[in-house]
Amino acid sequence: MGATLKLQPQTFIEDKNFREEYISKTEVLEKVKEIVMLPDKKFIESKEVAAYYNVDLSTIRQVKNRHKDEFDEDGVTTIAGIAFKDYKQSIALQGVTLSAKANVTLFTRKAMLRVGMLLKESDIAKKVRDYLLIVEKSASTEIRDTILGNWSSNDILLIEQTINEETAKGNTKMSALRKAAKKLNRNANNVQQKYYQIKKKFGSLQSYLVEKNVVYLNTPEDINISTESPHESNGQSDIVHAIKCQLESVVSGLREDANFLSQINELRLEVNELKNQIKLKDVLLEGKDAQLTNKSKLNSKLKKEKSDLEHKLKFISQIVQSSKVVDNTHTEIQDTKKYVIKNGVIETQ
């Protein structure tokens, strides 16, 4: 058995793997201090993140830039240009005015928690890290009570070892579980239920034993198996060889599970990123809908004004036409007169 790993608040700053393990526990943020979120309840403006941790906005930018890949995975996004104007208008319609002029950086809850894991010179960030450890301590106890029940860690390890032994011989897992039940002097159905209960929550017994610190397994290289005498029997050599093979099988399975879990985590991150993009698009669409509503109202108003102007124009045209008729009549009367020239002077008759 290896030594139990003791977590420290500093571990979050130094180890990305620990940050990833705890990144979903965003509920601790409200336990430490109130969060000021945007009306969509999906994002927090960067200046509010700085205010939460009592640091300058430049400090938040530095942390974000140093760990850009992690924050990108958390869904942090910067909006600029037309998208920024649309988003700003949509937020304004909900009663919030963004102070930013040209762009804004939006943090998700996970990203805000990651800031707390990484900030060194912030009392609030230290409280967040301490609270995470308190949650982990209580969660570990709850996991053991829920999953193990009256099962000891040795019982779970025996089941795992029996499965490895029997599958190596070509037997099925069901037969291995029945054999494990006989070794434990337990009902076979109870053993099967416990196996599938742990597998459903953690993927495999190996993952549970290692990742939840119930048991730490050493690699074959760490195990020193020595012979007591140069005259030991062939039977003892076979046992030693069998143990080595079992341990190699366990370690190989652990490595495969680790790769599988890593792929799952990557897919989860991609899904979360897509969800954040969809949420942002929804917010922008809401803003567009509001703009369309306003434009529709304005269009109706302009149409009414146009109708009024056309009516006035028609009325004025009628008046102008009436004036022309009067002018033409006057001209015709004048044209009935006759003109003659006498002695170089024009006279009418």
Results as ranks from 00 to 15, higher is better:
Leu118Asp: 02
Ala139Gly: 06
Ile79Glu: 04
Gly149Lys: 11
Lys120Gln: 08
Asn272Met: 09
Leu309Ile: 13
Glu34Lys: 08
Ala290Gly: 14
Thr78Lys: 12
Asn272Val: 02
Leu98Pro: 08
Lys200His: 10
Glu211Ile: 02
Tyr22Asn: 05
Arg114Gly: 11
Ile316Gln: 01
Gln193Tyr: 01
His231Leu: 04
Val283Thr: 06
Asp69Gln: 12
Ala100Asp: 12
Ser90Gln: 12
Met112Pro: 00
Val191Trp: 00
Asn276Ala: 13
Lys301Gln: 14
Lys85Thr: 04
Gln8Cys: 06
Lys324Thr: 08
Gln277Leu: 09
Ile239Thr: 12
Ser300Phe: 07
His330Val: 15
Ile23Ala: 08
Asn185Phe: 06
Asp222Ser: 01
Asn103Ile: 00
Leu247Pro: 00
Ile82Gly: 05
Thr146Asn: 11
Asn294Tyr: 13
Ile346Val: 15
Arg66His: 01
Arg144Trp: 05
Tyr131Gln: 12
Ser322Asp: 09
Leu298Asp: 14
His241Val: 07
Leu157Arg: 15
Asp145Lys: 06
Lys303Asp: 07
Phe12Ala: 09
Ser153Thr: 13
Arg255Met: 10
Ala188Lys: 11
Val215Ala: 08
Lys6Tyr: 13
Ser229Val: 08
Ile223Cys: 02
Gln263Arg: 11
Lys275Asn: 06
Ser233Asn: 09
Val210Ser: 09
Leu302Ala: 11
Ser153His: 12
Gln277Ile: 09
Leu313Cys: 02
Thr329Gly: 11
Lys85Trp: 05
Ala242Gln: 09
Lys306Met: 10
Gly253Pro: 01
Gly149Gln: 13
Val104His: 03
Met37Thr: 03
Ile198Phe: 07
Val210Lys: 12
